[in-house]
């Protein structure tokens, strides 16, 4: 499969903040690629450079193997920003036609038919004549997603696409994205929700402090970390598990523990230690979850920093 997009050593500085500091990665056609990282890692800035909102200070972005200056490929991208919003006063169909027009699609009957198709698929047909402001927040999200897809983009970039959706709509969107992937579209998902990426992504790119720290298919990445994670389900007080010398890091929620082990540790010793105090219901040695890998890679620094573009933004 060919690369649809290649980001090559791009850098972007805002004032004193190096938001993106030499990021390179490729996105293969027909995959769902997860762009992972904590808030402020540089995901949104990277995406804004891909979508041509910012010009990189240095480095370049290639579309289908060719350097694309000035975002000539923009119309072939569908972008759902994290900070999303719509013109609240407009009627649904008008707004969707407008969103298609700014992607260079004329308001033909074919486009209107497509709108009807998507409204149907998102269970919004009855709201067809409503104004945007009359819709619930979740429905507005769906409208914006439709707006992202109307011009039939080859690459769909979604920034935190699950925020604000209820569980039913989350499933709806997940299924949709998988369908789109199966139709040959490429999807770039930016998220800090590791579970979501694990569920959806074929490939992942992990960004930390403006740099790529990990890249590959989900399986490759996991394999690289070996089977050093213990999953234990138990009855009793398991807090002592995190203090065992073989345990590097532990997350214990209710009666389930996920323990990452120090190198060379013997899981058998942990089983022995546990068996005396706890009733073990499940004991499994597995590859680490993405969350574990993530924490292992970027450490456990406080997760309070937020991703904002500082004012006085300078190219």
């Amino acid at each position: 499969m060919a690369d649809i997009l290649a980001v090559r050593d791009v850098r972007k500085t805002f004032g004193d903040v190096r938001a993106v500091d030499g990021v390179s990665f490729t996105v293969r056609r027909g995959t769902i690629t997860g762009l992972l990282g904590r808030n402020g890692a540089g995901k949104t800035t990277t995406i804004r450079m891909i979508t041509g909102i910012f010009m990189p200070d240095s480095g370049d972005i290639q579309w289908l193997g060719e350097a694309a200056s000035g975002g000539a490929y923009r119309d072939r991208i569908g972008y759902l920003p994290e900070e999303r919003g719509l013109y609240k006063q407009m009627k649904l169909v008008e707004l969707l036609l407008f969103l298609a027009e700014i992607k260079g699609i004329r308001a033909t009957p074919a486009v209107r038919k497509k709108i009807d198709y998507w409204l149907e698929r998102f269970e919004l047909t009855e709201k067809r004549d409503a104004k945007v402001e009359e819709l619930s927040k979740g429905n507005q999200q769906k409208i914006q997603l439709i707006g992202t897809l109307l011009h039939d983009p080859e690459l769909i970039i979604l920034d935190e696409q699950q925020s604000g959706l209820d569980p039913v709509n989350m499933v709806l969107v997940r299924n949709l994205l998988r369908d789109l992937r199966n139709e040959g579209k490429t999807i770039l998902l930016s998220t800090h929700m590791m579970g979501e990426a694990e569920r959806m992504a074929d490939e992942i790119i992990l960004i930390h402090r403006g740099q790529v720290v990990l890249e590959g298919t989900l399986d490759e990445v996991r394999a690289g970390f070996g089977k050093n994670t213990l999953h234990i389900d138990f009855d009793g007080d398991g807090t002592f598990l995190s203090t065992l010398p073989q345990v590097k890091h532990a997350s214990i929620v209710n009666n389930a523990a996920e323990l990452s082990l120090v190198e060379g540790a013997d899981p058998q010793e942990i089983l022995q230690a546990a068996i005396g105090t706890l009733r073990i219901r499940r004991f499994e040695l597995a590859a680490p979850s993405l969350e574990e890998i993530f924490i292992d890679k970027v450490g456990t620094e406080t997760l309070t920093s937020t991703e904002t573009v500082p004012s006085g933004v300078v190219r």
Partner: peptide
């Protein structure tokens, strides 16, 4: 404030 602008300038 409606965050529409990001979609606009990406197009």
């Amino acid at each position: 404030t409606d965050r529409v602008v990001e979609v606009l300038v990406s197009s």
